[in-house]
Amino acid sequence: MGGVDVGGGGGGKRKLDSEINMIPFIDLLMVTISFLLITAVWSHMARINADAQVPGPPREVEPDKVEPEKQLHVEMRTPDKFVLIWKQSGTVISTVDVPRKDNLITKDGKKSIRYPELAQKIEAEWKTVGTHRDGTDKKFDQAILHTDNETAYVYLIGVIDAIYQAHRPYNVGGKSEQVPSFNVTFAVN
């Protein structure tokens, strides 16, 4: 038996010593370990968010007209380069070409692709042209992904992942946290 001796117990008083019965204690630990091992989740799934720019339900009061914001269009139509185009209401502000290198990594049949040059270029572009950079700003810059219909999904995820590498501060509940700088959506054409 395991025990804890805290002294006392003299003069006819009740003893302060207590004993732990080790057998049920070890049983409890074993059962807890078994339960936790059985319910353990070893594969960590995650998600990448995208926002479809769908208009909301019609409002009774027409909102004030706001000036169209700058949007970053990421084009991946050719195998050798990405094209980053900043547009504001159809007007092209700037265009940048980024060389495309498909570093496809296959592990156990699962593919992943990274575009570090694209991610760095998008981050640099956002720092110079992006509109919503302040932590108190509740809106985000918009990135629109253009791709042809034959591109495999793994490449789309690689580009979206690169777009989400740019981070900005965002104040929530009095504290600042780092969140992706862009909202991503797909171009229909």
Partner: peptide
Amino acid sequence: VKSVFQTSAFAGYPNVSFMVNGL
């Protein structure tokens, strides 16, 4: 991907998440 994305948006699900393996 785009067809399913657009269908989901029109069915009332504009916030689309793509499940991936986290790195």
